[in-house]
């Protein structure tokens, strides 16, 4: 493939992923608001569209029309560009989700690596967003986010690594194709680690320290408003959806390896269930303290992930 064609395909995928992630974010925000509302014995959005589905769209329009405020003391170019730097990696992660057995939109062999590594780049965006705001809270939020995301990268990668070992491939499509039911009990610990680490990676409660409202007001995006703020939100929900889809794809073999439309439905259902569980956890638990968060990552999750790896390593010779 020529460089130009590759670039063209990349741009096309990027556009597609952006659209998908935008829709996914719309849906994600709606789902979160609905689930949170039900947990809190409310109805949530009701008025805009059926079941309030268009509420997020209406909010988006509002956010687009809002004044885009840049603080006087901010590092203006950095401040302005950082939302996109956070958004792009999250959107990019979507292109390696195994939507069907053996197929990912952007078929690279190291797809799992891509999924783990590329969204990790958004930590840079978050750190710089916090830093460029020239705001104490934002800075603290940015630094917390950096520490947290780097820490949780490790157990998350290790848990996926175990899968790669089982499947013998780094391509998520292959992992999905190779999946068989006995992986479920074998990979249980790995899935728990992946799930928790994904939540932490996405800076969502109970690991939402970087944006801890009660401590840091809104953390790294405290000074953002309007569309730029919305892009941060889209990144978060896009990441949420991507992590759920990827998890459902690789840990559950899509829809438990079922073929055809049934498999597709179960796959989506699993992803939705994972999303809802993440929301459920966020709205049930208090937030951890930074030191507790770190010790949890390094003292609980990483050993668990390593244990999982060892378990898989033990099983591997008999395959």
């Amino acid at each position: 493939m020529s460089a130009a064609a590759s670039f063209g395909w990349g741009a096309l995928y990027g556009l597609g992923a952006s659209l998908v992630i935008a829709v996914a974010a719309l849906f994600g925000v709606w789902a979160e608001r609905k689930v949170a509302a039900r947990i809190q014995m409310r109805y949530g959005p009701l008025e805009a569209g059926p079941f309030g589905l268009l509420q997020t769209l209406a909010d988006t329009i509002k956010l687009v029309l809002k004044e885009d405020v840049t603080p006087n003391s901010a590092d203006v170019p950095v401040f302005r560009i950082m939302p996109f730097l956070v958004f792009v990696p999250c959107a990019a992660a979507l292109v390696v989700v195994p939507f069907a057995a053996g197929w990912t939109p952007f078929g690279i062999e190291a797809g799992a690596l891509f999924f783990l590594a590329v969204p990790g780049m958004s930590v840079l965006g978050i750190l710089l967003a916090g830093w460029s705001s020239r705001n104490t809270y934002a800075s603290i939020g940015g630094v917390r986010a950096a520490a947290q995301m780097v820490s949780y990268e490790l157990p998350r990668s290790l848990s996926v690594l175990a899968l790669c070992l089982l499947a013998g491939s780094l391509d998520p499509g292959v992992i999905r194709a190779e999946w068989s039911w006995w992986w479920l009990p074998l990979m249980a610990i790995g899935f728990v680690v992946y799930f928790i680490a994904s939540i932490a990676e996405l800076n969502r409660g109970p690991f939402d320290l970087p944006e801890a409202e009660s401590e840091l007001v809104a953390g790294y995006f405290a000074d953002y408003s309007g569309i730029r703020w919305a892009i941060f939100m889209m990144a978060e929900y896009g990441g949420l959806v991507a992590a759920s889809l990827f998890g459902a794809g690789v840990f559950f073999g899509g829809g438990f390896g079922l073929p055809g439309p049934v498999g597709a439905v179960v796959f989506v259902a699993l992803a939705v269930a994972m999303t809802i569980c993440m929301v459920w956890a966020k709205w049930t638990f208090p937030r951890l303290r930074p030191d507790q968060l770190m010790s949890f990552a390094w003292k609980v999750l990483t050993p668990m992930a390593l244990g999982q790896l060892a378990l898989v390593g033990l099983v591997l010779p008999w395959l």
């Binding site: 689930v35 039900r38 014995m41 409310r42 109805y43 009701l46 459920w280 956890a281 049930t284 638990f285």
Partner: peptide, 21 residues
């Protein structure tokens, strides 16, 4: 303790909302 918490929120989420439509 975590599971109990999740159970409480789950139970509440299927109860009748206290707000009004």
């Amino acid at each position: 303790s975590l599971v109990v918490g999740l159970g409480i929120t789950a139970r509440r989420s299927v109860s009748r909302p206290v707000t009004l439509k």
